[in-house]
């Protein structure tokens, strides 16, 4: 296997890890105002992700850095092309990160409501935007011969990409609801279970719809492998309901996680060997070959990743193990 292919896979792994982990963080943030009817409940909800959200977000920063290092042209075209969408994303992420740290450091209910709003918007907007962005990656965007994006912000918003955004939003919310079922108890847990059911049917519908739309809009099933995996992702969403009914929240959580993993697998498999598909001219596609760094850089980066990624996985897993207990109404709360 070429190093370019390895790095294409690694980028996929980093984004998948990011969506798996940050996906439930976004979901928790989106459900915060819905499920937390008192300040105590809202604190209970936020503290389930308190020790983790920041490290989860580093998966995105690492994915971005890896994109820059391994595929400079992909990074350059994507980030300059999706400009205003990324400005919105940054705006949301800035608000959200600060809000976690600030909201409980002042007693005034207006202060807390304000930051809770920031957590909500700061979670909802990225959950939507990431779906729109990845929808555009597989649908293709206008790219000129100079490798630059040639469209504008509104070219990124088609029915298909918006549907993709809606799907990511609902699946992340569902992922978060299942996570809260696992991590809380009492009234909050009961409400989270209610949210799982409330979100499950829309999630199944939108996932099925997205699968059909992918067939129509991007000819997904022309490639049997990715098409099959994408169909499995829809099955995984269906399984969430099954496990929830059987009162097996760990398996339900694995199922929402699997939905995310399979979707990403289908997506990257479908794109390969392209990294950015040009809707204006196939000759302008960015591929793993024409967008990558030199083989020397890829070698260096491969060595670094092989040495250090295992450490990261171990200590991050350990942090989840350390804070494995459910957050109850009388747990000591930091946030």
């Amino acid at each position: 296997m070429d190093l370019q292919d390895l790095w294409f896979i690694l980028i996929g792994v980093l984004f998948t890890g990011f969506f798996f982990l940050e996906g439930f963080d976004y979901g928790v943030g989106i459900l915060l105002p819905v499920l937390g009817s008192s300040d105590a409940e809202r604190r209970q909800i936020i503290n389930t992700i308190g020790p983790h959200w920041d490290a989860n977000e580093v998966w995105m920063i690492t994915a971005g850095g890896a994109l820059f290092a391994a595929f400079p042209d992909w990074y350059a075209t994507l980030f300059s092309g999706f400009y205003l969408a990324l400005v919105l994303l940054l705006f949301a992420l800035i608000l959200r990160g600060v809000a976690f740290e600030f909201r409980s450091k002042e007693d005034d209910p207006r202060w807390r409501t304000l930051w809770d709003g920031a957590i909500f918007v700061g979670s909802l907007l990225p959950a939507l935007l990431w779906g729109v962005a990845f929808g555009n990656l597989i649908r293709g965007v206008p790219i000129g011969a100079d490798k630059n994006y040639a469209g504008d912000f509104f070219d990124l918003l088609s029915p298909y990409t918006l549907l993709f955004g809606l799907a990511s939003l609902i699946v992340f919310a569902l992922h978060g609801a299942v996570f809260l079922d696992l991590k809380t108890d009492g009234a909050v847990r009961r409400k989270a279970q209610g949210a799982v059911w409330a979100l499950w049917i829309p999630a199944v519908l939108v996932a099925g719809l997205l699968l059909i739309a992918s067939h129509i809009d991007v000819d997904l099933f022309d490639q049997p492998g990715p098409g099959f995996v994408a169909a499995l992702a829809v099955v995984a969403v269906l399984a969430v309901g099954y496990f929830q009914r059987a009162q097996q929240p760990i398996r339900a959580f694995a199922a929402t996680g699997l939905t995310i993993v399979l979707t990403m697998l289908a997506l990257f498999w479908f794109m390969y060997p392209n990294v950015m598909i040009s809707s204006s001219n196939v000759a302008n596609n960015l591929t793993v070959d024409n967008a990558s760094s030199s083989s020397y850089t890829l070698k260096v980066m491969t060595v670094v990743v092989l040495i250090f990624l295992p450490f990261v996985l171990v200590y991050q897993a350990w942090s989840y193990w350390t804070f494995r207990k459910r957050i109850t109404a009388d747990s000591p709360l930091e946030y």
């Binding site: 920041d54 490290a55 977000e57 580093v58 920063i61 690492t62 971005g64 850095g65 890896a66 994109l67 820059f68 290092a69 391994a70 595929f71 400079p72 042209d73 990074y75 350059a76 760094s293 030199s294 850089t297 260096v300 980066m301 670094v304 990743v305 250090f308 990624l309 990261v312 200590y315 991050q316 942090s319």
Partner: peptide, 21 residues
């Protein structure tokens, strides 16, 4: 990007994960 991206990615992998976790 060939040169500048590498330290940025390494920064995230070696430092940001450590710091934030």
């Amino acid at each position: 990007g060939d040169i500048f991206g590498a330290p940025l990615a390494i920064e995230a992998l070696l430092a940001f994960f450590l710091e934030s976790t």
